[in-house]
């Protein structure tokens, strides 16, 4: 039947920031029309000898409740915002960070500013055909979120997770600016994340077969935390 994935990577972020587009770009090597994701979608990626499952979640408010479940036991979470929308970055902290409580203890976080192609300081692989950006479609817009903002957010996330900064990967390594449209930095993003996640798999495997036993242990630990709401 389905190959059992070794590890889970989840994309979180407000609707319309381009999560689905990023995954399309990475998996299918193209940028195509998307519809707002319903519920969630699921990809399997063979990376080296491992199977990585990648979950594309829905940013729409309606499906917000599913986030915790999708994040459960995730080994990496890619928090995505739109560089042309300050709001989308703020939502990450306000709305999405809480969903990651269910993720695996040593979960990695990446903060990704997408749609870098829209901003005025981007002059890379040119896009010519018609497009449907959320803002004005002819000229470029002013960048609303700078990499420093993302780095600052990353540091706050580490604080929230109560991770010693010295043990976590450096913020500069975990903040990316991408464009699903041009493909800019997309491979770099996913491949860096995968490469960092693999030691976690190895560690997990070394700790013996996980499955049910380990999970129940883990959940008893967290019982107090989740049980209160």
């Amino acid at each position: 039947m389905i190959k059992k994935p070794d590890v889970k990577v989840v994309l979180l972020g407000d609707m319309n920031v381009g999560k689905t587009s990023l995954l399309h770009r990475y998996m299918d090597r193209k940028f195509q029309d998307t519809v707002s994701t319903v519920g969630g979608a699921f990809y399997l990626k063979q990376w080296r000898s491992y199977n990585i499952s990648i979950w594309d979640t829905a940013g729409r408010e309606q499906f917000h409740g599913l986030g915790s479940m999708y994040c459960r036991s995730a080994s990496a979470i890619i928090l995505t915002y739109d560089v042309s929308s300050k709001q989308s970055l703020m939502e990450l902290e306000d709305r999405f960070l809480g969903l990651t409580d269910t993720a695996s203890e040593d979960c990695l976080f990446a903060v990704v500013g997408n749609k870098i192609d829209l901003t005025d300081d981007y002059e890379g692989e040119e896009e010519s055909e018609g497009e449907r950006p959320r803002t004005c479609s002819t000229s470029k817009v002013r960048k609303q979120v700078y990499l420093e903002d993302a780095i600052a957010l990353y540091k706050r996330i580490m604080k929230y997770k109560m991770v010693d900064e010295n043990h976590a990967p450096a913020a500069e390594k975990m903040c990316f600016e991408t464009s699903a449209k041009t493909g800019h930095n997309v491979d770099v993003l996913f491949e860096s994340v995968f490469n960092m996640v693999i030691p976690l798999i190895v560690k997990k495997k070394a700790n013996g077969p996980e499955d049910t036993i380990n999970l129940s242990q883990e959940s008893t630990e967290k019982h107090t935390k989740t049980g209160c709401c």
């Binding site: 319903v38 519920g39 969630g40 499906f63 599913l66 459960r72």
Partner: peptide
């Protein structure tokens, strides 16, 4: 929500897309 049929395991994990 939204007319989805959600899959969930006893561990609280979804292994399939809805």
């Amino acid at each position: 929500p939204g007319g989805l049929g959600m899959f969930a395991t006893v561990a609280g994990i979804s292994q399939r897309a809805p």
